[in-house]
Amino acid sequence: MNGQKCCTFVGTEEQAQKLKEVIEKHKNQKGALIPVLHEAQEIYGYLPLEVQKMISEGLNVPLTEIYGIVTFYTQFSLNPKGKYKISVCLGTACYVKGAGAIIDKIKEKIGIDVGECTEDGKFSLEATRCIGACGLAPVVTINDDVYGRLTVDDVEGILNKY
């Protein structure tokens, strides 16, 4: 959505060159857009306006259409992942055990909403479906670290570790 908090886009010459090659490679194929978006996301880690614009111009597909596809499929992301990627499970078990309050607390602490990234690029926040650790509900992961049986009061201490 418009006005989301995020660190500003910085792409390198090298990334741009790579994207150009990807576009060139798929240019005259039918249905080129989805594979190009995938490869672009691999190059940049996410698909901000600047990247979508390059694809729009390169493939001659309206930006509006590209944005529609990016927001329709959950595998595409409009925002970069932070250095520390916080995932809060909102699956049934976690939800019942209070994951909602935990995610609210995290939002409050780092000042961003789900799907966003802090301006310094440190944290990003996302909500996930059941990650198969229901016994530990409610569960939060930060990169590869797993925190289970959390209460709202644990949040601050955990965030401070990073």
């Binding site: 979508q52 309206p62 930006l63 509006t64 259409e65 944005y67 529609g68 927001t71 329709f72």
Partner: peptide
């Protein structure tokens, strides 16, 4: 082509990029 369907499910909206 400045408007199209964006997002999905209940959040679907016709809007610009």
């Amino acid at each position: 082509s400045v408007i199209d369907a964006q997002e999905r499910g209940f959040k679907t909206i016709v809007a610009s990029a």
